[in-house]
Computed example of a mutant assay.
Amino acid sequence: MSRLQVVSGKGGTGKTTVAAALALALAAEGKRTLLVEVEGRQGIAQLFGTEALPYEERKIAVAPGGGEVYALAIDAELALLDYLQMFYKLGAAGRALRKLGAIDFATTVAPGVRDVLLTGKACEAVRRKDRSGRFVYDHVVMDAPPTGRVTRFLNVNDEVAGLARMGPVHHQAQSVMRVIKSPETAVHLVTLLEEMPVQETADGVEELRAAGLPVGNVLVNMVRPRLLDDDAVRAASAGGARADAGGAVRAPSGDRRADVARALAAAGVGGAEQLVDPLFEQAAEHARRVELEREQREALAKLRVPMYELPLLGGGVDLAGLYHLARELRRDLGVSDA
């Protein structure tokens, strides 16, 4: 597994949830993971039920086997203060610049520099070692911007080329790109089995490849359970029609509807006659959904990227749900316990 795991996806696909579950999955069995947020939404704090994350690394969860998950909400202004102190030793002068609004001005008018600061902080955590020479974090998971912006966000070297062709900013951008374009990094895209997210995922994979950025996996989130087998889907797709032994589809007979009504009544369901048509309609709707998902799976398969599916959590995403998704990811991705 790559040490820097970047998670992106179209808005609404649950990329923050998947990033959090991935951090838990990678931290199991005594390992340590840093979960990084770069958009200032405090989505990680909400998922784990903690107070808003400060600009410091804070432990937020314990994974199975004693592993630890730390989290960091990177603030571009504070990261720039760190940067100014690191390269220019400004100290109090840097803080004075912030009070004057110069720091906010710099990160706003130069978005390329902002992205260098955000990605640079994550890459520093990837490279950081303790006094014994071991990496402080086994993995760093970044909850990155949405698919439509992630390539530009990660490709910071090109972004700052017109701003700084030499000097500390230029060298910092090159240092970031050495990590991001290395085997240490994988960029995962989260999607749903729906047309727009799948198309955006396909576009994202193409953009990442064109930029020479390492594509990881496609993670299909919120997959609904399949309630009907293939024969039932074929029958229900025509609004309750059924297939005969030769494969021909025939409209449901009155006898068939009567059979369903009798079965409902035998089960103690009141008003069985009035429920038959709505049940057939729901079955047909489910069948259409199954067909749509089949088409989207085929579209994703054409991307030639490993694809894994995560189940829809009927009760919504809470801490228990995150641990459940983490178990699914460990099994699907083959994360070693060693």
Rank of each mutant, 00 (worst) to 15 (best):
L4T: 00
Q5G: 00
V6R: 00
G11M: 09
G12S: 09
T17W: 02
V18A: 05
A19V: 02
A20F: 01
A21F: 02
A23Y: 01
L24Y: 08
L24P: 03
E29C: 09
R32P: 05
T33E: 11
L34K: 10
L35A: 07
V36Y: 03
R41H: 05
R41Q: 14
R41W: 01
G43N: 03
Q46Y: 05
L47A: 05
P54S: 10
E56R: 13
R58C: 02
P64F: 06
E68V: 10
A71T: 04
A73I: 01
D75V: 02
L80K: 02
Y83A: 05
F87W: 15
F87L: 11
F87G: 04
Y88L: 15
L90P: 08
A92V: 13
A92K: 15
A93T: 15
G94W: 09
R95N: 15
R98M: 15
L100K: 12
V109L: 12
G112A: 05
K121N: 07
C123I: 10
E124S: 11
A125R: 14
A125E: 11
R127D: 10
K129H: 09
D130W: 06
G133L: 07
G133M: 08
V136K: 10
H139S: 14
V141H: 01
G148Q: 15
V150R: 08
L154D: 11
V156Q: 10
E159V: 06
E159T: 07
V160A: 05
L163N: 04
R165T: 14
M166D: 13
G167N: 11
A173I: 07
V179K: 05
I180V: 15
S182A: 09
S182R: 09
L193Y: 00
V198L: 03
Q199R: 13
T201P: 00
E206H: 06
L208A: 10
R209N: 08
A211C: 13
L213T: 10
P214L: 11
V215W: 03
L219V: 00
V220E: 08
N221W: 00
R226D: 05
L227K: 06
L228N: 07
D229E: 09
A232K: 06
R234H: 07
G240M: 06
A241F: 04
A243V: 12
G246W: 12
V249F: 15
R250E: 13
G254T: 04
R256K: 10
R262T: 10
L264E: 08
A265G: 07
G271S: 13
L275P: 00
L279H: 06
V290K: 02
R294L: 11
L300A: 07
K302A: 15
M307L: 13
Y308S: 04
E309T: 02
L310C: 02
L312V: 02
G315H: 12
L319D: 11
L319K: 14
L319F: 06
L322H: 01
A326V: 00
L329S: 02
R331I: 02
L333A: 01
